[in-house]
Design a protein around this nucleic acid. Structure first.
Lengths: 238, 238
DNA sequence: GCAAAAGTGTTACTGGTACACCCATGT
DNA sequence: ACATGGGTGTACCAGTAACACTTTTGC
């Protein structure tokens, strides 16, 4: 017997990554899907779908994320459950997640899609500074996800979710700068992340146009964020 | 047409207040309801109920809160949406809120209930250190709510949600100590909350067994907590 | 050599903590 | 008077910010 007849449960995900623009800067970007059905047909919306009886919300989020990007996230956390009665013509409660993808994986996947020509046709990546009008309350949801990301970057290591396994301190600082939207002092940044003890220096250096920079790895013993009594199994990623 | 047939949406609330024990200490306490139906009949559970099509989740939380305590909360915020497939014999997604009640209001309401004799018979207040076995995953939910409260007290004014309109700095410090479970230096505590600028000193003093203590009020221009782009209308209280 | 990023050193400031001390009241 | 909590002063410590400086590479 269904107790809450007439209320549907959806799962949507704000999928964030760092994109490198043509002039070399790093900006936040996310994929949106073009709706083909009413309501809000022909408008852009967050990837998502209905929650099915056999899967948990976090599994549904990971599934829809894989369907739209072909990737598994480096970080995945519940954002909020939106349920205002007027947020959709029918009564829908959306459990929204937010996810981080590694920049290099997105680039590789995008290249593969371009090469094969079978990228999902109704999916497009948008820079956060250049979003189209969005369906439902999805604009507000994205703003909230950004606020959470910016808050969380201050007291956790979520920024690492954007980077590949090995990276320079400049890479990491660039991620922080893109998230926070402000310049950080390289000297102080170095000392702070070094003293945090989450980074393992490698013997490799990235050579480029200037003095080579040491590559670092994550200390994988440490979680990207503290979830409290909810273990990562409930709130984060596989 | 229902898309997610077979999934019910419930709303539960972790309702917290400060109770004064017989020996004068302040401890956190919350109301639980004794279940009369399966599953988990005759076990204690969080107050809550099914989400109805005409109300938003936050309204449902406020409604069930009023039904069990007769009170409106001084703070109300969404905690998390729990939706693991095995958390209930039937498929239930619970949107859980957490609320703070002013200690004096709870005391008054309890006294009124005792006097009239018509307190809800299946509702009982439990100290947090002395909880009974709980139905479903409600024990984990309470632990998570406590973790959120303890985190949030460090960077917001939520502790004020336990206190009446006028209070001494010792009252406020006692609330912080009960939440955090540790002793705070009175001198440093005073300077910290004074410099935060959220308190307005009054001309009144509470007289007692020793030097009278100045009473303070909230600066009601300031929200109890920063909700980011989600205004208080979505996440907090009326 | 020069430009530019990598990386180190130094200093000043700020907020938190510990704790000594004075103040005002009831008993 | 004295015990007790209210309230002030102060010294110290740690983390942060600002910025001068040295190192190492490509050109």
């Amino acid at each position: 017997m269904t107790q809450t007849r007439g209320i549907d449960v959806a799962v949507s995900t704000v999928i964030l990554t760092l994109r490198r623009t043509d002039d070399g800067a790093a900006v936040l970007a996310l994929p949106l899907v073009l709706r083909t059905r009413e309501p809000f047909a022909d408008q852009w919306a967050l990837p998502g779908g209905w929650l099915t009886p056999a899967e948990s919300p976090v599994d549904a989020a990971a599934r829809t994320l894989a369907e739209t990007t072909g990737l598994t996230p480096s970080y995945l956390e519940q954002l909020y459950a939106f349920g205002a009665v007027d947020r959709s013509p029918t009564r829908v409660v959306s459990i929204v997640y937010w996810a981080l993808l590694r920049q290099d994986e997105v680039d590789a996947q995008s290249a593969a899609h371009r090469a094969s020509g079978l990228a999902p046709e109704n999916v497009r990546w948008f820079d956060l500074g250049d979003l189209p009008p969005l369906a439902f309350d999805h604009r507000k949801i994205i703003d909230y996800a950004l606020w959470r990301l910016r808050s969380k970057v201050g007291y956790s290591r979520v920024a690492h979710g954007f980077l590949p396994a090995e990276f320079t301190l400049a890479d990491l600082r660039e991620a922080y700068e893109a998230i926070l939207g402000k310049h950080l002092d390289p000297a102080n940044f170095r000392r702070q992340v070094e003293s945090a003890g989450n980074l393992l220096p490698t013997d490799q250096f990235r050579t480029g146009s200037h003095r080579p920079a040491r590559l670092y790895r994550y200390n994988t013993d440490v979680e990207l964020a503290d979830h409290g009594p909810l273990g990562p199994e409930e709130t984060s990623t596989r």
